[in-house]
Design a protein around this nucleic acid. Structure first.
Lengths: 338, 338
DNA sequence: ACCGCCCATGTAACCGGTTACATGGGCGGT
DNA sequence: ACCGCCCATGTAACCGGTTACATGGGCGGT
């Protein structure tokens, strides 16, 4: 029957009403009599009518599309983040268009142009560092954007996330409080990851007194973590604890230590960052920092909807992240006081 | 200057040309003189002009939007798959809209309606089993779709992926060939996952002769794998090999065996399915089946583009998946011939 | 020198919605 | 009984592109 998808004029014809009334029903306008509404709804059902989103977007000048650019989707933290965004957006009939930047500001800029060309009317960016050309582009076009997975009260742009620097400092404090004085920090590439940089700076801020801290940069992967720990083991001065700025790296450390015949936490303590699903299942269970990735996704998406529908300003929002104490860090106070 | 985003009529005014010519330049039509083209391009640059995608979609009746529905994005295999789709699509200025069904056909149907309402003109579905209402909906609206991560020559719909049943059978054959006669198969929920079901049936098809096979259904997570293996260890009749229908489950088995003080593969062999990034880094390195997730994503996206642009039919495509032999499976021929 | 064709460009209709404004029927208040 | 207001509904312009068809200038062939 309706070979080309039903159009609003078909529904009007079917019901004997005008297209304006059909449109009012579809948009939940109040000035429609209940009988008419009912009649229209039935006709829509019969004709399988779905309003054409392009036509709607054109006449309302609203695309109901939000863009997100993430460095990678293969890291679970970002997958959860995207999933949180997607859920919240689609519940309000918004679409998400996303792009993957591989952490490269130039790729990010190119992706943003594409997404703009797809009608995105809001941008969810990851991290605090971006090409000035990108920020300029968005500002010139008056497209709102937010920086996520970071929280920085001093930023001139809205930031929604946690305080990477403070969390890393907290992790070091935690290890110190349990008597660890020789700590190796393993982290992913600093280039193009301001979040990693912030964590490193936070850790470094605790680099005082009797604590010796060494930083190792490696690939952000299980492989990277494993490589890093084998380098550590090759040297003489072994740390008592390894702090990884991602659970993925910690998993590599687990395998590296297992291969070397070292036990966690008896021979070496290991702490992660992320609290991925499996972190509680490792052997021993991984002590880590719980990052609320899905929650950030939901929060930022909700803010965008509120902004686009009601003009509510985007607000910087600090989400809590806390240490989850499990079994991979040992209290070595007294036993090894040096 | 251009507070509202530049429109095609602004560019026309700026260059003294008509909107038709501007449109021709933007679409790469051949009948435009080089000087004019140049002049238009410069004006577009100056005015920061990007064609309004809604207007374009409305007048061409093409949204350049493809939908993908996946059961979850938190499993790396799907994250890679989506990433493959997204890359290929965006290179041709198509957008991806995606939804997560949690493996529930009703949620999938609801999501599909939303995505249709967002203008999707092609659907990438996961697995072979879907609500009849969904298939009916898509067929009635003449929206093309493909079933992915499965390959079934007998399906009436295009399937793009690997043969889950054959791969599982191959895995069992491989274990048998190394002397394993008591095999436990650990898999995720059968309900709503025809892919898991196909694998189970494939394995079962080898349930002949002297091989004893036991199937355990659990959550598709590290936790699930760990729970399953601890149930196995609690019983008397221990298997010589554990085949997991996901690397994630295998990781749980690794931790469960480590906790029980059992060594892999000396005390028990473990085999996975997926070949996730970290599989080569576990200790011992995991023998598994390499599923070409990103490749499927790229292949299906490329087919959709070709279909939507040139009318090329969607073709069922069989992608190779092969066993990756690493160190987690032991050859026990001779040592334990019973 | 002139005719005709081709190519670059323009005109205007159209895609399918939304919404400001117009219209008119019915009901309440006097 | 009549007036006026309100509410349900309709008319038509508009959003910003694309494209079929129209137009006219210049060049090549005779």
């Amino acid at each position: 029957m309706s070979n080309p998808p039903g159009r609003i004029r078909d529904v009007a014809k079917e019901t004997g009403l005008s297209i304006a009334t059909i449109s009012r029903v579809m948009n939940g306008s109040k000035n429609v009599s209940p009988q008419t509404r009912q009649r229209v709804l039935e006709a829509c059902e019969r004709l399988d009518y779905l309003p054409n989103p392009a036509a709607r977007a054109l006449s309302t000048a609203k695309s109901r599309t939000v863009a997100a650019i993430i460095p990678t989707i293969e890291h679970s933290v970002f997958a959860k983040f995207i999933s949180g965004i997607e859920n919240t957006l689609s519940a309000q009939d918004y679409s998400l268009v996303m792009a993957i930047s591989n952490g490269d500001p130039e790729e990010e800029l190119a992706a943003a142009r594409k997404l703009l060309g797809m009608g995105a009317e809001g941008f969810i960016l990851s991290g605090a560092a971006h090409s000035p050309a990108l920020l300029d582009l968005l500002e010139r076009r008056r497209v709102p954007f937010a920086l996520t997975s970071v929280w920085d009260a001093k930023s001139t742009h809205p930031t929604i996330g946690y305080d990477n620097s403070a969390l890393a400092a907290e992790a070091v404090d935690y290890l110190s409080s349990l008597g660890h004085r020789r700590i190796v920090v393993i982290h992913g590439p600093l280039s193009n990851s301001d979040r990693t940089l912030a964590r490193r700076e936070g850790a470094q801020s605790r680099h005082s007194g009797g604590t010796k801290m060494t930083f190792i940069e490696t690939d952000l992967s299980v492989t990277g973590g494993r490589k890093a720990i084998s380098d550590v083991l090759a040297k003489d001065d072994r740390p008592t604890a390894v702090l990884c700025f991602s659970d993925v790296l910690a998993l590599g450390v687990y395998f590296g230590l297992a291969e070397a015949g070292l036990r966690i936490p008896e021979d070496m303590s290991v702490m992660g960052f992320d609290n991925l699903d499996w972190a509680k299942e490792t052997h021993p269970a991984l002590t880590t920092i719980n990052l609320p990735a899905a929650q950030i996704g939901r929060a930022v998406a909700a803010q965008f909807i509120d902004h686009l529908e009601n003009g509510a300003p985007l607000r910087s929002t600090h989400l809590e992240a806390a240490i989850v104490q499990r079994a991979s860090v040992k209290d070595i106070r007294g036993s090894d006081a040096g």
